[in-house]
Design a protein around this nucleic acid. Structure first.
Lengths: 168, 168
DNA sequence: TATTGTTATACTCTATAACTATA
DNA sequence: TATAGTTATAGAGTATAACAATA
């Protein structure tokens, strides 16, 4: 039916448009509604978007947050081990670490036992930033998700996603 | 700790390494296990990967599949309407349609009522490809997900993801 | 003046090959 | 020879500005 926004008849019936004038008729999503991958992708984008909003004061992306968190839980590891665990390719990890190191959040030190590898360590500022980040994530980001889904469903969702990530 | 792979003692105990020699000790994921966005992202990558594998015979990406599906369910729509519905920016939609049109899966026709816009229509080949694609998705891709999670959990997961995508 | 499709462009992510220094 | 970190590079995906044709 094309996009006929206003006709002479419409103008008489309603001066103020009730719809926000976006689209005349919403499209049929069809089998897309039943496609898990589609909802998965849309949900992921929404969640990352909210993560960035909540983390704006600290200027940390989800990937950067995951690096700081992993370093804090696994001191003394090298770049390859951290990158592999997070599914980041080593070449791409270099610039990421450059950025975090230049912000004084972590340090690279040559390992005495194997001088090829860099031991990654959070600085005091890195630990402080991580702790503030964890609080923001918990109180602003994750709390909103739990509010939306309810605690039980939120936990169930987390379990199913982890299962897909690990076993699919 | 570091990465001491083989010591004199080890060599006596086991000639054949039981571990696949990948990593000595697995890393601690810490709070990352409770971060919904993290599992969401990892799960999404796995699902898209499997989608591409299942769809290899037809050479369709998730995004291309969603376009064909939407066109089939919404005949006579223009580029802006389809792109907006799928969250694709109009400039980026152009090359995507070029690719599908060059494979003779759809056609662009100037609309008689508004000669600025292109009406998008699936070709016979496009409809045939879509139908084969839907069968592949259902029998190979989605079926495996349902098998992994169980039908009830699969449906619950779909509902929660759709809720996040729509309301979060 | 506003909108549709388009071009140009840029920035992020991701992926592979190859170099260097160490082992 | 093999591995860790790095460089260079190329390809997707995504984002914005601006132009021609049309309304």
């Amino acid at each position: 039916m094309a996009a006929s926004k206003t006709t002479a008849g419409d103008a008489l019936k309603r001066q103020v448009p009730l719809e926000p004038a976006l689209d005349v008729a919403p499209l049929q999503m069809g089998e897309l509604s039943e496609l898990l991958g589609y909802s998965l992708k849309r949900a992921q984008l929404k969640v990352f978007e909210d993560f960035l909003r909540c983390m704006a004061p600290l200027q940390l992306t989800p990937a950067q947050f995951s690096v700081l968190l992993l370093l804090d839980n696994n001191p003394g590891r090298n770049q390859t081990e951290i990158a592999n665990t997070l599914g980041i390719l080593r070449p791409n990890f270099v610039a990421m670490l450059d950025a975090l190191e230049s912000r004084d959040l972590l340090t690279r030190m040559r390992s005495p036992s194997d001088r090829r590898s860099h031991v990654l360590t959070l600085t005091d500022k890195g630990r402080a930033t991580l702790n503030r980040a964890k609080k923001l994530v918990a109180t602003r980001h994750e709390a909103r998700l739990i509010e939306l889904l309810g605690p039980a469903d939120h936990a169930a969702l987390l379990g199913m996603l982890a299962k897909i990530a690990a076993e699919f």
